[in-house]
Simulated assay, not measured.
Amino acid sequence: MTDSMFGNDNDQWVCPNDRQLALRAKLHTGWSIHTFQTERQRKAQTLEKTELDVIMSVIHRSEQLELIEQHRIGCLVERLENMRRSAMGNGLSQCLLCGEELGLLGSPSVLCLDCCMKVCTKCGIETTGTQKRVQWLCKICSEQREINLLLNGM
């Protein structure tokens, strides 16, 4: 009775160890292996050295690209933090970023969609929204959106 519920000795499934799971995750293969295969079947399924070399080179290249992308994101985050630190205005009567006076006698201003602070048109970035309307973002919020897109895409 238990053989029909849980399988018999010829049909056992075994969970692989952590090392095998990590490799299988990188290769996007299954998570378990059938254990009753004969030695000949296993040898027929083994990869040749050249195939293993190709697989390892792909994994190595992927890891290198991931490191490069992490470095690039780190540089973007650092640039964003520098921009926040160097902001000179109050965002009400002055441009948030460059500190230039805004209003009738000063530069024309726009309101940032995300932070609701005023910036001059030089420090603002014009974008289109979902309804094809022109919307403005300050450079800080624009950079923050770009970083969020990169992080959510990973």
Rank of each mutant, 00 (worst) to 15 (best):
Glu101Leu: 11
His71Ile: 07
Ala87Pro: 00
Leu105Thr: 11
Asp114Pro: 00
Arg85Leu: 15
Leu137Cys: 05
Glu101Val: 11
Glu143Ile: 01
Lys132Cys: 02
Ile147Glu: 03
Asn90Ala: 10
Asn82Lys: 14
Leu102Lys: 05
Gly89Gln: 07
Glu126Trp: 00
Glu146Ser: 08
Cys115Asn: 08
Leu111Arg: 03
Met83Ser: 06
Gln144Val: 00
Met88Glu: 13
Gln94Cys: 12
Met83Pro: 00
Thr121Asp: 02
Leu105Trp: 11
Thr121Ile: 14
Asn90Glu: 10
Glu143Tyr: 07
Ile68Leu: 14
Lys132Leu: 11
Trp136Ala: 00
Gly91Leu: 06
Met88Lys: 15
Asn90Lys: 05
Ile73Glu: 10
Cys112Ala: 07
Leu102Val: 06
Leu67Val: 04
Asn148Leu: 10
Cys98Leu: 03
Glu69Leu: 07
Ile125Pro: 00
Ile147Gln: 03
Glu100Asn: 11
Leu105Phe: 14
Cys141Asn: 09
Cys75Thr: 12
Met83Cys: 08
Cys75Ala: 14
His71Gln: 15
His71Lys: 15
Gly124Cys: 06
Glu100Phe: 06
Ile140Arg: 02
Glu100Ser: 14
Ala87Met: 10
Gly74Glu: 12
Ser107Lys: 15
Ala87Val: 02
Cys116Glu: 13
Thr128His: 11
Ile68Tyr: 12
Cys120Arg: 06
Ile73His: 01
Ile125Ala: 11
Gly89Glu: 06
Val77Thr: 07
Glu126His: 01
Met88Leu: 15
Cys95Pro: 04
Lys132Thr: 02
Lys122Gly: 02
Asn90Ile: 09
Leu113Phe: 13
Cys116Gly: 00
Asn148His: 11
Ser107Arg: 13
Leu104Pro: 01
